[in-house]
Design a protein around this nucleic acid. Sequence first.
DNA 1: ATTTCCTGACTACAGGTGTAGTCTAAAATT
DNA 2: AATTTTAGACTACACCTGTAGTCAGGAAAT
Lengths: 124, 124
Amino acid sequence: MNNIPKISEAEWEVLRVLWEKETCTASEVIEALANNTDWKPTTVKTLLARLVKKKAIGFREIDRTYSYFPLITQSECRKVENRSFLQRVYGGALKPMLVQFIRDEKLTANDIEELKRLLDERSE
Amino acid sequence: MNNIPKISEAEWEVLRVLWEKETCTASEVIEALANNTDWKPTTVKTLLARLVKKKAIGFREIDRTYSYFPLITQSECRKVENRSFLQRVYGGALKPMLVQFIRDEKLTANDIEELKRLLDERSE
DNA sequence: ATTTCCTGACTACAGGTGTAGTCTAAAATT
DNA sequence: AATTTTAGACTACACCTGTAGTCAGGAAAT
């Protein structure tokens, strides 16, 4: 996909379900989201419809019921969000951003080791 | 400030100026933004008014002209944005997020050294 | 003193977003 | 066959956002 559409906060929630399960009917999505949200079924359907319109997801009709599936990958979306977040909040400066996160958020000793390894690879 | 208001993309741009200069008249902000944007002066004034309404900035009248200044710090705002970004895009999982950034974005050898040092501190 | 200009206040307006209700046709149930 | 349930289509609506125009009142210029 060349042109990743803008995904809103609530839409991310829906997409997350589809990325996880690969393919779902509306009611499966509704059920999955019932755990994390208080959304009425119609709300979820609206979000699905909007995602279809944005071409972020597609669907196939099976037996009078739609099965939805993502048309964009999570990794694509993340990349786009990363960039825009980095730009908006840190003016594009990666290091200050990383510093802030490493400082403020929780990391296990293992995480830390792994990140250091990753940084080592990067420096080659 | 306990309750950081939601700052939109365009508003961040304005806030960035105020954080940098500490205090500015509207026309100074307009001028500063003329470099990075194509916004008409009225647009910037609207954004200033909205930020005032959200209590993100304040102003003092001096000689019939307002001098604006931030009421929230950049670091507070960043913290809030960090959290919501991490939640929305990575479901709250910090390490995958860091991994992605370290992999995809540019870092100098120096940056890498510094980050490793920071991680070392963290692991104590 | 009159005109012009600047500043802030108010108004505008389309498109996105969160959140959901209603309508219709088909399917399932009684 | 009649009724109820369901799924998708369409409609709703307030608030946010990007982007800006107009108006009124004092300040500056003529």
